[in-house]
Design a protein around this nucleic acid. Structure first.
Length: 522
DNA sequence: TGACCAAGCGCC
DNA sequence: AAAGGGCGCTTGGTCA
C-alpha cells in the first residue's frame, strides 16, 4: 500500500487527500497501523523532519532517486530528476532546472501537492512495469529508497566520535592546536627542515615552489607525488613526506573539521545516495568516506555499548560469479576464501588466482595478467565472457547495466569525437575498462544496499546503523545486544544474496566483530 | 574579489 | 593485500 506524504497532506493512493496539520503524528499513527510504503518527493527533504520528531518509517519510495534511475536507464543522464521536474515532463510543461540543494534558498518553489506526487508515482510504476526485468528494477528502487532512509537516519544519529581522543591524537602527531592561521608546531618544524635541506625558503604546500627549489638543488622533478619523491635521494625528501602526511591530517580532519562536523560526540556527515554513477554513495561535506585509518581509534562506542563492524569479504569476484552464472567460479565462491579455492586452477598459486580475477574485473594488462587471463578464459568461460562483453559494449559506446538495472552514463560528445581521432583506440579502451568495472562494482553496490536495507529492519531497538562505506557497515548497540546484532548482519547478508541472486551457490560471507573502538576491527 | 582548475592523496 | 575504476576535499595558482 502506497501513501503519499506531501507537505501537510496525506494521500493513500486510490483514496482521497487528507490535511494533516501535524504530519509527524499522522505518519506515526499510520505507520504503526499499516506500515505503508511512504511516497515522497525527496527523502532528504521529507524525512529529516519526521526523524526530528522521533518518527521512523519502514519503507518508502523516493521519487527523485527513482526518476534518476529511470532516466539513466533510457540513457538520459543528467536531466533534472526532481519530482517537480518529473511532473513537468509528464504534462509537457517546461522542465525546471535541477533544484538548488542549498536549503533556505530564496524563491524556493512550493512543494509539489499530494495529487501531483501521486501522478509521478503512477507514471514511474508504469515505466517500471514496461521494462524487460521489472522485478529486478522494483528491487533496485526499493533498495535505493531504503538506502535514502538509512542515510538520513545515520546523519541524524551520527557516528560516535570522541573529541577528546581526536584532540589527543592530533596533539600527539602535530603538537597543540595552533591559533587560527598558524601551523601546528610539529608541522612548522618539518616545514623548516624542508627549507633548510633545500637551502631556500619554500612553502611545502606549493607544488611550483617545491619543483623550483628541488631544481635549484640539482634534482629534476616532474611532480611532487610521494611515489616520485621516494625515488630520489635528497635530505629534503624525508621531512617533506612527513609534512605532506601530517598536513593532510591537519587540514582534512583536524580541529577545524571537528568544529564543523562533530557535535555532541557524534560525527554527522551528509551522505549522497547513489552519488557515484556505479551506485556507491558519496558524501557532501565531512568526507565520511575518506576517514584516514589512523583516525579510527577516535570512533569509540559509548560506555556500555559496542560497535559491531562488518565488511563483505571479496565481494566483487563473488558478485561476478553469481551474475555470470559461471558454475566453476560459483563453486569456488561457495568457499570462505575464494582465492584459495581458485588456486589449483591457476598453477596452485593463490596470488595468481587473485591477479586473474582482479585483471578480469578491472581490465588489468600488466605483469602476468595476460597469461592468467588466458587461463581464466579457459577455466571460467562464462565469467570471462561476462566482463569481456561489458568491456566491448563500452568500447563501442553502448550502455551497460548492473544486475538490477542501474545504467552506465552514455559516452560524452567529447568521447565520440576522440574515439574517431588519432587517440581513438585509447579512448575506446578507457571506456571499456570503465564499463567492465561498472557491471561488477554497480552490482556489488546494490548487494550492499540490499544488505543495508534488510539489516536495518532486523536491528533491535535501540541499536543504530552509524556508518556505511561501500562494503562495510557499523552498528552501535548496547553490549548486551552484540550477539544478536552480529547474527542479524549474517542473516541480512544471506537475505541480500537471495534477493539479488535467488538460489545461487555463491556465498557472501560477512564477518562481524564487536569492538569498543573502530581501530580494533581489523 | 570570486570562480575555476590542477595537483595530490584519502577511502573502497 | 592485490590494482582498477571513481569519488571528496583542500591548497595554491590563474584568470577575469
Amino acid at each position: 500500500m502506497y501513501v503519499v506524504l506531501a507537505g501537510e497532506s496525506l494521500l493513500p493512493v486510490g483514496g482521497t487527500v487528507r490535511a494533516v496539520p501535524d504530519p509527524a503524528a499522522a505518519v506515526r499513527e499510520l505507520e504503526a497501523a499499516e506500515r505503508p510504503r511512504w511516497v515522497w518527493a525527496d527523502t532528504r527533504e521529507d524525512y529529516p523532519r519526521l526523524l526530528g520528531a522521533g518518527v521512523r518509517v519502514a519503507r518508502c519510495h523516493d521519487l527523485a532517486l527513482t526518476e534518476g534511475l529511470l532516466l539513466a536507464y533510457d540513457g538520459r543522464y543528467g536531466e533534472p530528476r526532481s519530482a517537480r521536474a518529473a511532473h513537468a515532463r509528464l504534462h509537457g510543461l517546461p522542465v525546471p532546472e535541477e533544484e538548488p540543494s542549498a536549503p533556505g534558498t530564496l524563491f524556493a518553489p512550493e512543494p509539489l501537492g499530494a495529487q501531483a506526487v501521486a501522478e509521478v508515482l503512477a507514471d514511474q510504476l508504469r515505466r517500471i512495469e514496461a521494462l524487460p526485468e521489472p522485478g529486478r528494477f522494483r528491487l533496485l528502487v526499493a533498495a535505493e529508497s531504503a538506502g535514502a532512509l538509512v542515510a538520513a537516519e545515520m546523519s541524524c544519529d551520527g557516528m560516535p566520535w570522541r573529541r577528546d581522543v581526536h584532540d589527543a591524537l592530533l596533539t600527539e602527531l602535530l603538537g597543540p592546536r595552533p591559533v587560527h592561521g598558524m601551523r601546528p608546531a610539529k608541522l612548522q618544524a618539518l616545514a623548516d627542515e624542508v627549507a633548510a635541506a633545500l637551502g631556500h625558503p619554500v612553502n611545502p604546500d606549493s607544488v611550483q615552489q617545491l619543483v623550483k627549489a628541488f631544481k635549484a638543488a640539482g634534482v629534476a622533478l616532474k611532480t611532487t607525488r610521494s611515489g616520485e619523491l621516494k625515488r630520489i635521494d635528497h635530505p629534503a625528501v624525508a621531512p617533506l613526506l612527513a609534512y605532506k602526511e601530517l598536513a593532510r591530517l591537519f587540514s582534512f580532519h583536524g580541529w577545524v573539521w571537528a568544529d564543523q562536523w562533530v557535535r555532541d560526540g557524534r560525527f554527522r556527515p551528509e551522505y549522497v545516495v547513489g552519488g557515484v554513477v556505479s551506485g556507491r554513495w558519496a558524501t557532501n561535506g565531512g568526507g565520511a568516506l575518506q576517514i584516514p585509518k589512523v583516525m579510527r581509534r577516535v570512533v569509540m562506542a559509548d560506555d556500555g555499548w559496542v560497535l559491531v563492524v562488518a565488511d563483505a569479504a571479496q565481494l566483487e569476484p563473488r558478485v561476478l560469479a553469481a551474475m555470470a552464472g559461471d558454475v566453476g567460479l560459483a563453486r569456488a565462491a561457495g568457499e570462505i576464501d575464494l582465492y584459495s579455492a581458485l588456486a589449483k586452477s591457476f598453477g596452485g598459486e593463490r596470488d595468481n588466482a587473485k591477479i586473474a580475477m582482479l585483471s578480469a574485473m578491472y581490465g588489468g594488462t600488466s605483469g602476468d595478467a595476460p597469461k592468467l587471463l588466458a587461463v581464466m578464459r579457459q577455466r571460467f568461460p562464462l565469467a570471462y565472457q561476462f566482463v569481456e562483453d561489458a568491456a566491448k559494449a563500452g568500447e563501442e559506446g553502448r550502455l551497460v547495466r548492473s544486475w538490477l538495472g542501474r545504467t552506465s552514463p552514455p559516452p560524452s560528445a567529447r568521447w565520440k569525437e576522440l574515439v574517431s581521432g588519432p587517440e581513438g583506440a585509447r579512448a575506446a579502451r578507457d571506456r571499456g575498462r570503465f564499463t567492465r568495472n561498472f557491471v561488477v562494482q554497480g552490482t556489488a553496490a546494490e548487494w550492499a544496499l540490499a544488505l543495508l536495507g534488510v539489516l536495518r529492519g532486523l536491528l533491535p531497538e535501540p541499536a543504530r546503523l552509524v556508518f556505511f562505506q561501500h562494503d562495510e557497515v557499523m552498528v552501535h548497540c548496547p553490549l548486551a545486544q552484540a550477539e544478536e546484532v552480529i547474527a542479524a548482519v549474517s542473516e541480512a547478508a544471506g537475505q541480500a544474496s537471495r534477493l539479488l541472486f535467488g538460489g545461487t551457490p555463491v556465498r557472501f560471507p560477512m564477518e562481524a566483530v564487536a569492538v569498543s573502538s573502530y581501530a580494533d576491527a581489523k
